[in-house]
Simulated scan of single mutants.
Amino acid sequence: MADNTSPDWMPRMPHPTLSLEQTKPFRHQLTAACLSLLLGAIGAHGWYLGRRYWYIPLMVTALAIGGTVAWKQGLDDVFPNMLILPVSAGIIEAVVLALRNPKKFDALYNPQSERHNQHGWPSVLTAVIASVAFVNISLYWLVHIIMAVYRHLGWLDLSVY
C-alpha cells in the first residue's frame, strides 16, 4: 500500500477544492436596487453585492445617530443633518443599479454565472420611485437646513422686522 488511508485496489479520488469563484451566489440587479433604495443608508446593497467597504454608509449613519443621541441634539444641529449623506447616496445608487446595463452588471457581479439579469418594468419603476424619493427627501432637507440657518441668524424673529 502506497497510502495508509486507502488500499491499492481502490481508485484514488482527487481532493475537492473549494474556490470562492465557484461558490458565489447569483446576484439579482433588482434586489440590489431595492436594497439600496430601502436600506442604502446602512449599506445593505453593498453587503448583498459583496463589496469590500460596504460598511462605510453604516458607519456614517451610526455616527449621525450616535452623535444625535449622545449630545441630545435637535433637528437643527450637525449630527442629524449628516444623515442626508448616506440616505442620498443609497437612493442615487438605487437609480444607478436599476438602470445599469444588465450585461455590465453581470460582468461585474456575476462573472462565473450562467444566469443573466434582464431589464423590465420592475427596474424602471424602481428607478422612478428612487428618483421621486430623492427629490422629496432632498427638498425636505434643503428647506430644513435653510430654516435652521435662518433661525440661527435670527431672521425668523418677529422683532427683527
Rank of each mutant, 00 (worst) to 15 (best):
D3I: 05
N4A: 14
T5Q: 12
S6T: 15
P7S: 15
D8C: 04
W9V: 12
W9F: 10
R12G: 06
M13F: 03
M13W: 00
P14G: 10
P14I: 07
H15T: 11
H15V: 11
P16Q: 12
T17L: 14
T17V: 15
S19C: 00
E21D: 15
E21R: 11
E21I: 01
T23V: 15
P25C: 02
F26Q: 12
R27E: 00
T31P: 01
A32F: 02
A33S: 10
A33Y: 00
C34V: 13
L35F: 06
L35I: 04
S36C: 01
G40Q: 04
G43C: 09
R51K: 15
R52I: 13
Y53D: 09
Y55E: 13
V60D: 03
V60K: 05
A62R: 03
A62Q: 05
G66Y: 07
G66M: 10
G67A: 08
A70D: 09
L75V: 12
P80D: 14
M82P: 00
L83S: 08
L83K: 09
L83H: 10
L83C: 05
I84Y: 03
I84M: 08
P86V: 12
P86L: 07
V87G: 02
V87H: 02
S88P: 01
A89D: 08
G90T: 07
G90A: 13
I91H: 02
I91Y: 01
I91G: 06
I91A: 03
I92E: 05
I92G: 09
E93Q: 14
V95T: 09
L99D: 05
R100Y: 01
R100V: 11
N101W: 06
N101Y: 08
K103C: 10
K103V: 14
K104D: 07
F105C: 05
L108I: 08
Y109Q: 13
Y109G: 13
Q112D: 11
Q112F: 06
S113L: 05
E114I: 06
N117G: 09
N117A: 11
N117W: 06
Q118M: 06
Q118T: 12
Q118R: 12
G120K: 02
S123T: 04
T126Q: 01
A127T: 07
I129E: 00
A130M: 03
V132D: 02
A133I: 07
V135K: 04
N136C: 10
H144L: 13
H144N: 13
I145V: 15
I146C: 11
I146Q: 11
M147P: 03
M147Q: 14
M147K: 13
A148Q: 03
Y150F: 08
H152A: 08
H152S: 11
L153G: 12
G154W: 00
W155H: 10
W155E: 12
W155I: 07
L156Y: 06
L156C: 08
L158P: 02
L158M: 05
S159C: 00
V160G: 00
Y161Q: 09
Y161V: 07
Y161S: 09
Y161N: 09
Y161C: 02
